[in-house]
C-alpha cells in the first residue's frame, strides 16, 4: 500500500461515517429500542446473562443488516456514478484502493458496534465487549469477501448480494440431506448457515475453529476473485 493511499484512508473513513455510519447507528438504535424499550417499560431487571441473551437477539437482526448496509455499493457506486474517472487517473492501484476501502469499512463497522455496545451498557447492563465485537467482526468478514466480489462484478450489488443470501438459504433448506449433485452443490454454496452458531461467542461460548476457518476461507477466496476482477476487467 503506497503512502498516498494510506493517507487517503482518513477520507475514506469520513465517507463511511457520513454515508453509512450514521445509517448504521440509526438502524442499530431503532432495532435495539424495539427490544429494550418494552422490557424497560415493564421494569425488567437485567443481569449480565440476560443482557447477553438480549444482545444475541438484537445482534442477530442488526449485525447482518448492518453488514449489508456497509457493503452496499462499495465498488459498484464508483463505477455506476463515474467517480472512478478522477480517482484512478492518480497513481493508485484499483485493487489496493478497494482493499483499503474494505479495511476502512470494517473498522468503521466495528466502531459503530463498539458505540452501540457502549450505549447498551449505559442503558441496560455493561457487557464485556470482546465476544460481541468478535461476533460482529466475523459476520462482516464472512460476508465481506462475497459482497466485495459481487460489487466488483455488477452495478447493482445490493440486490445481487440479497439474492445470493436468500437463494442460498432457500437452496440449503430444499436440498438438505440429499445425496449426489445436490450434496456437492450444498458443499459449495456460501456457508451462511454457519453464521448462526457464531452468536455463541456473545454468551461466552466457543465456536469450532474449523467453522470459523471455513467461513473466513470461503470469504477470502471470493475477496481474491474480486481483486482479480478489479485487475483484469475494464472499469468503464
Amino acid at each position: 500500500m503506497s503512502g498516498n493511499l494510506l493517507r487517503y484512508a482518513i477520507w475514506q473513513l469520513r465517507d463511511f461515517a457520513r454515508e453509512r455510519g450514521i445509517a448504521l447507528m440509526v438502524i442499530g438504535l431503532a432495532i435495539s429500542i424495539t427490544f429494550i424499550g418494552p422490557m424497560k417499560a415493564i421494569g425488567v431487571q437485567f443481569t449480565e446473562n440476560s443482557a447477553r441473551q438480549l444482545i444475541v437477539t438484537i445482534l442477530s437482526q442488526v449485525a447482518l443488516l448492518a453488514a449489508f448496509i456497509a457493503f452496499n455499493g462499495m465498488i459498484s457506486n464508483d463505477r455506476k456514478l463515474g467517480y472512478y474517472r478522477f480517482l484512478f487517473s492518480k497513481p493508485v492501484s484499483m485493487p489496493a484502493y478497494y482493499t483499503q476501502l474494505f479495511a476502512v469499512f470494517f473498522a468503521g463497522y466495528l466502531i459503530v458496534f463498539a458505540v452501540l455496545l457502549g450505549l447498551f451498557g449505559l442503558v441496560v447492563f455493561p457487557v464485556f465487549p470482546i465476544g460481541v465485537i468478535t461476533y460482529a467482526a466475523l459476520v462482516f468478514l464472512s460476508l465481506g469477501g462475497i459482497a466485495f466480489f459481487i460489487s466488483s462484478l455488477v452495478r447493482f450489488d445490493w440486490p445481487a448480494l440479497g439474492g445470493v443470501f436468500m437463494g442460498t438459504l432457500l437452496l440449503r433448506s430444499v436440498l438438505a440431506g440429499r445425496d449426489g449433485p445436490a450434496a456437492i452443490l450444498l458443499a459449495i454454496l456460501p456457508p451462511i448457515h454457519e453464521l448462526l452458531p457464531l452468536a455463541g461467542l456473545v454468551t461466552g461460548g466457543t465456536v469450532a475453529p474449523l467453522t470459523v476457518l471455513w467461513l473466513l476461507g470461503y470469504s477470502a477466496c471470493f475477496f481474491a476473485a474480486g481483486l482479480i476482477v478489479l485487475r483484469r476487467r475494464p472499469f468503464a
Binding site: 503512502g3 454515508e19 478522477f86
Partner: peptide, 27 residues
C-alpha cells in the same frame, strides 16, 4: 492529469476537500 468531459465528483464533497483528496491521492 485528466479532465473528464463528464464531471463525476461526489456531489456531497466540498470543492476544497475534493482538491485536497485528489492532491493526497496524487501523491
Amino acid at each position: 492529469g485528466y479532465l473528464s468531459e463528464l464531471m463525476s465528483i461526489n456531489p456531497a464533497w466540498k470543492a476544497q476537500d475534493a482538491l485536497t483528496r485528489f492532491a493526497t491521492l496524487a501523491g
